[in-house]
Computed example of a mutant assay.
Amino acid sequence: MGTASARDVVHAFNELGFTALDPKWNGERPRAISERVREYVRLIALGRPPVGWRTTDVTTWSLARLAGRLIDRLAVPRISRGTLRRILREGKVS
């Protein structure tokens, strides 16, 4: 999103008064990974690694392996282990 022009600010001020000048920033960036994909990640993490995902010798996920497979399967374009850890923690998946 671009910044508001001076004309936009003046019009908003004329309509709303000083409340138009209050910042509407909530302090967070918008999430790059949707809630639907987050839920998918949690479901995958709860189960054993699927046979077709080249993980036949593994019975549990590591963060690095899970991140790599999610990227390989095009569930996400990229994901860090820290983000993956937060997603799992938010869903109470250990």
Rank of each mutant, 00 (worst) to 15 (best):
G2W: 01
K24H: 11
A4N: 07
G2E: 01
L63V: 04
V37E: 02
E39G: 06
T55Q: 14
I33R: 08
E28I: 04
I71Q: 13
R65N: 04
I44F: 13
A64Y: 12
L84Y: 14
T55E: 11
A64T: 15
T60A: 03
R86C: 08
T3W: 10
R48C: 09
V76T: 04
R7W: 10
V76Y: 12
T3R: 13
R31P: 10
I87G: 04
D57A: 09
V9H: 09
L70R: 11
F18S: 10
T60P: 00
L21C: 11
D22L: 12
P50Q: 02
R69K: 15
K24Y: 05
K24I: 02
S5E: 05
E90N: 11
P50N: 03
P49H: 04
N14C: 12
I44C: 14
P49M: 02
R73Q: 14
G68V: 06
R29C: 06
F18E: 02
G27A: 09
A67Q: 00
R54E: 09
F13T: 00
K24S: 10
R69E: 14
W61H: 11
R48A: 10
L88N: 07
G47D: 06
A67Y: 04
F18R: 07
A12S: 09
P77F: 03
L88E: 04
K24T: 11
R38Y: 06
W25Q: 08
E28F: 14
L88D: 02
K92T: 11
R38A: 09
I33E: 01
K24W: 03
L66Y: 13
E39T: 12
R65H: 07
W61Y: 09
G17W: 09
